[in-house]
Amino acid sequence: MIKWRKWIRILHRDIGYIAAGLTVIYAISGIAVNHVADWNPNYSIEKSVIKIEPIPDSILTSRELVFSILKKIGEKGKLKSSFSPDPNTLNIFVEGNTIEVDLKSGEVHQEKVTSRTLIRETNFLHLNAPKEIWTFVADIFAVALGFLAISGLFMIKGKKGITGRGAWLTALGILIPIVFLLIYYYKIF
């Protein structure tokens, strides 16, 4: 007789080891993106406002104007480009900083962006931003998780296995989403 339970344990153990890293990545990102309405899971954005002298009708070229503003506010980051959404506003894009200048009032709004290291990378993978080969990896991971869930049910025999306590706990796990959906869609209970 094939000792199928032994093989299930071996496969569950080894696939479990391989899946551990990705499971942690998906768990961290799962919490991070669950709360996207309350915080930005990828970036920390620091906003500030300062005032410089108004620049209503500048004789400088737009490039000279950009550099003179950067000097005034002490920004030394690498300049990427600039844009005027209207005649009185100038947006300057510097590495890690977006500067919006109200030329009439001299009000300067800055938005400094820093990446949330590690969490951002976990979101990148969890939300399958890279696509292509990562779709394949994520599909294999999903199949592996399915196998771990099913094989986990049959690893232990006896009272604490799927014929005893395990059956009740498994039923509870299945009931949680069903009850939620009944409440959510049909207002039952």
Binding site: N42, S81, V94, T98, V113, L127
Partner: peptide
């Protein structure tokens, strides 16, 4: 949503 995700670092680039 989710098909393409543009990072904030792309701001200012062409």
């Amino acid at each position: 949503d989710g098909e393409i995700v543009f990072p904030l670092e792309e701001k200012g680039k062409t």
